[in-house]
Computed example of a mutant assay.
Amino acid sequence: MKSFHKVRPELREWILATARAGHGVPEVLRLLKEAGYDAAQSRRAVSEVLDIPLTSLNAVAPRPSGRRPKHPEAPQVLVDDQPIRVTISVEAPALRVLDGLLSTEECEALIDAARPRLNRAMTVDNQGKQQVDAARTSRGMFFSLGETPLIATLEARLAKLLDMPVEFGEGLQVLHYLPGQEYEAHHDWFDPSQPGYSTITAKGGQRVASVVMYLNTPEEGGGTGFPAVGLTVTAQRGSAVYFAYETGEQASLHAGLPVTRGEKWIATKWLRERPFRP
């Protein structure tokens, strides 16, 4: 696979000449791919040469070829005879608020299992490694797939609800927020323009959906905000917010809003386009 850090003069001239000949951006990117260039770096080169915002080029990138989840539909979905109510439904992004996804007992058991293993919550860096990020101030931990009977039960429930095999999910993460702690606005998909994109996605492809499950009800604050939609999902024990996304889209921007009183416990499941290999 060819790559470049600075746009060479001959490549710059080729991009300009191809664009002037009437070829659109998708065609230019396709030709670069056929010539052996890395897709993410090709978008960066085209962005620089044609003076096009990189976010716009990410939006025209090919959609993932892997599996996609099935969005739960209102008013409710039955999973093993358990009714899960869809109380809010948004189409762009595909977003559903799910009531009754977990029982009170399951929420409490997850908290009890996670509490002794909490550490400063991390984010994923450009090489796919965990890093401390000032934007994320909570504490958290990960369960491996099927680690306990409870984890296996919840993973199977989500797999049936979203028509996505268990192995397409990352390990369940539990997070604990105290007053003032938050996770600033971010996207869950991996940015193809970043140098470590191929490393991160080698483990199972791009992320395609997220499920944020609320394990308790904070006394005040702690919801999940979607600024592009103008929606704040209230944290209520046993409920969850599911949302899906495409690479480069902006509508799924979201934030774990600050807890202003009490504490917040959540469990997050990220889904990939292909089976995930830790």
Rank of each mutant, 00 (worst) to 15 (best):
D81K: 11
A19N: 06
F190H: 07
P195Y: 10
R261L: 08
A21W: 08
L95T: 05
R274I: 00
D99H: 01
A74W: 11
E105K: 14
E263Y: 10
R261P: 01
T137A: 08
R115P: 02
Y214G: 02
L29V: 09
E13W: 09
A74L: 08
A134L: 12
L257N: 07
G238Q: 04
L29K: 08
V174W: 04
I266Y: 07
L118N: 03
P26E: 05
E219P: 03
T55G: 15
K6M: 14
P227W: 07
Q206C: 09
A35I: 03
S198A: 15
V241L: 10
M141E: 06
T137G: 06
A40V: 08
S198L: 12
P195W: 12
F226C: 05
S103D: 00
A59R: 13
R207F: 00
R85M: 04
P72Y: 07
V229M: 03
I52R: 00
P165H: 12
L101S: 11
V90A: 14
Q41R: 14
D191F: 01
G22M: 04
L257H: 01
R63F: 05
V166T: 14
A113E: 13
M141Y: 04
K264V: 04
Y214W: 08
S42M: 12
K269M: 11
F143V: 07
E108T: 10
P165Y: 09
A94R: 15
V132C: 03
G230D: 07
Q236W: 06
V124T: 12
E105F: 05
P83D: 11
R85N: 07
G221L: 05
E246Y: 06
W189G: 00
K264T: 05
A114R: 09
G205M: 02
S210V: 12
L95V: 05
D80I: 04
S252R: 10
V124L: 10
L32W: 01
N126M: 15
W270I: 03
T18M: 02
L118C: 04
E34C: 12
G100C: 05
S138W: 08
P53D: 05
R85A: 11
V174S: 06
P149K: 01
A21T: 03
A135Q: 14
R85S: 09
I84L: 08
P83I: 04
R237D: 06
E48G: 09
P64E: 06
L78V: 14
T201F: 12
S42Y: 08
G140H: 03
W189Q: 01
S65H: 03
F226V: 07
R120Y: 10
